[in-house]
């Protein structure tokens, strides 16, 4: 079997360093397999968060050669193997230990967003008539597995830590807000929150989030830009403002 060297970040919130592990790998292996092999054979106490190992749960997010990736979906043959492979925890979050990041802020952000609030049901059994064409936009956002790689790569989070300071909810939660906003049965209004509290204006559309999304959700174009447009329509449209002043504006 061929050999490879993994440089894995070992440490905790107080600091740490990359440590090199040499190991064998076989055809078809993914980065998580190699990390597990190292853990079982050389470093039993290596901390790594994972769960399904099939790209469906979004637990094993890390930075592989500096790129935000799911370790379980990164095949060895997609990496340059003439040099060592570096693996480190996501950088936009505090570290817990080794490859495990403290992603708890994401759960706090989710809780702040107003939940789904349906309009009255269309049918006696408590359900709605919704057509496939109308649910498809939100269904794209529901593919999200909450791996938080988009949060990790976004410069507003990564460089400015606005997500940790409560000023910016980040791409994952714009996707969540867009799912709610475009849900055919939802009747809640979240625009004021998006503008004032959630910081949708901080996104300057560099589309880094869309690039790293393992579920291929078109985060920027399909979720964030429409939300920005809705905020702009309500709060910054000069014509609407005039109509409002003279008492002809709609209720929103």
């Amino acid at each position: 079997m061929p050999k490879t060297t993994f440089k894995i970040w070992r440490g905790d919130s107080k600091g740490g360093e990359f440590r090199a592990y040499e190991t064998e790998y076989s055809e078809g292996m993914v980065v998580l397999d190699v990390v597990h092999k190292i853990q079982a054979e050389q470093a039993n106490d290596l901390a790594v968060r994972w769960n399904c190992k099939a790209g469906k749960c979004g637990s094993c997010s890390a930075e592989v050669n500096g790129q935000p990736k799911l370790m379980c979906m990164t095949r060895m043959n997609t990496l340059p193997l003439d040099r060592s492979v570096t693996v480190e925890p996501m950088q936009a979050f505090p570290v817990e230990k080794d490859l495990v990041a403290d992603v708890s802020v994401n759960y706090e952000i989710k809780k702040r967003i107003k939940p789904f609030k349906p309009r009255p049901p269309d049918h006696d059994d408590g359900t709605w008539t919704m057509h496939q064409a109308d649910v498809e936009r939100s269904q794209e956002f529901r593919k999200c597995i909450e791996c938080f790689l988009c949060q990790d790569v976004c410069h507003v989070d990564r460089d400015h830590h606005y997500h940790l300071e409560g000023k910016f909810i980040g791409p994952r939660f714009f996707v969540h807000a867009a799912y709610l906003d475009m849900h055919p049965a939802d009747a809640e209004d979240r625009l004021a929150d998006l503008k004032e509290r959630d910081g949708v204006g901080y996104c300057n559309i560099t589309k880094c989030c869309t690039v790293v999304c393992p579920e291929h959700i078109t985060i920027t174009d399909n979720a964030i830009i429409p939300l920005k447009e809705r905020v702009a329509d309500r709060y910054y449209d000069p014509l609407a403002k005039v109509l409002k002043v003279i008492g002809l504006g709609g209720k929103k």
Binding site: T127, W128, T129, S138, R142, L180
Partner: peptide, 15 residues
């Protein structure tokens, strides 16, 4: 569905 789930739809718009 009442809690926000979006199942695939029939041509009539039901689950």
């Amino acid at each position: 569905e009442a809690w926000g789930a979006l199942f695939d739809r029939t041509p009539e718009g039901r689950i």
